[in-house]
């Protein structure tokens, strides 16, 4: 039976050392670049025709644009317009990274906690910075919830702060756990197919087929959730204080 953990190992391909900073080109790095290339190719090739009446590919590209634009508009309002390239990049990066991991021999970069953590931290720091730059010190009034009797406040404020600080953790853990768990399950069931032989092997195979389908849904869903929460946090930073 195959080791379900082994699929996550990072394999160095080209050793690179930038003045003490380890920057070796690994399979993870390769898939990161592949993600960038795929997204860019998809979008630029689909839009090559620039038809007024879009064909299939162009419709998909335009759909992704309008989907994110709609998310931003609904959750942040018109001030969210300036964050559109970032949110769009975030969504497409995570989405395509998740999907590429589902390809045969694909590597899921988002199944590594460090990757999801960096993405989440960037979002967290960015959103907090937006909030502080917009509202100055009044930003911290966010941690004083309304409608709470004064006696409970010394308890509520630390809890609010912890809740706020837990955002990057939850963002990264959610994506990481979903991807890792999904791939482990697929590997485990796949490992059962051959040992159960020609008669018993069909069951885990069927489960795996369903799992792959489910994981495509999860790939999209997790990208969506990450992006929507980013928009929500942006909304909090911009509107609340």
């Amino acid at each position: 039976m195959a080791n379900p953990i082994e699929q996550f190992t990072i394999r160095p391909l080209v050793e690179i050392n930038l003045g003490g900073l380890d920057a070796t080109f690994t399979n993870a790095s390769a898939f990161m670049l592949l993600t960038v290339a795929t997204v860019t190719l998809f979008l630029s090739l689909s839009m090559r025709g620039r038809a007024l009446v879009p064909g299939r590919w162009q419709s998909m590209a335009e759909l992704s644009y309008e989907f994110i634009a709609g998310l931003l508009r609904d959750n942040v309002g018109t001030e969210g317009r300036r964050f559109f390239p970032f949110v769009f990049t975030l969504f497409m990066f995570i989405l395509f990274a998740n999907m590429l991991g589902l390809m045969p021999y694909g590597f899921t970069i988002t199944s590594h906690i460090i990757v999801t953590f960096v993405l989440a931290i960037v979002v967290f720091i960015g959103v907090t910075a937006v909030g502080i730059m917009r509202h100055g010190l009044k930003f911290f009034s966010y941690f004083v919830p309304s409608g709470v009797p004064a006696a409970v406040l010394p308890l509520m404020i630390p809890i609010e702060i912890i809740s706020y600080l837990s955002r990057p953790i939850s963002l990264s853990v959610r994506l990481f756990a979903n991807m890792t768990a999904g791939h482990i399950m697929m590997k485990v069931f796949a490992g059962f197919v051959i040992p159960l032989g020609i008669f018993g092997g069909w069951a885990p195979l069927g489960v795996d087929v369903l799992l792959v389908g489910f994981e495509f849904l999860v790939a999209f869903l997790q990208a969506y959730v990450f992006t929507v929460l980013t928009c929500l946090y942006l909304h909090d930073a911009i509107h609340l204080h």
Partner: peptide, 22 residues
């Protein structure tokens, strides 16, 4: 290495999106 290449790819994608695709 993961962080380095993540930053490189994300920044590259951001640049490509904001200047070309979007």
């Amino acid at each position: 290495s993961q962080v380095v290449w993540l930053v490189i790819s994300f920044v590259a994608l951001y640049a490509l999106m904001s200047t070309v695709a979007l």
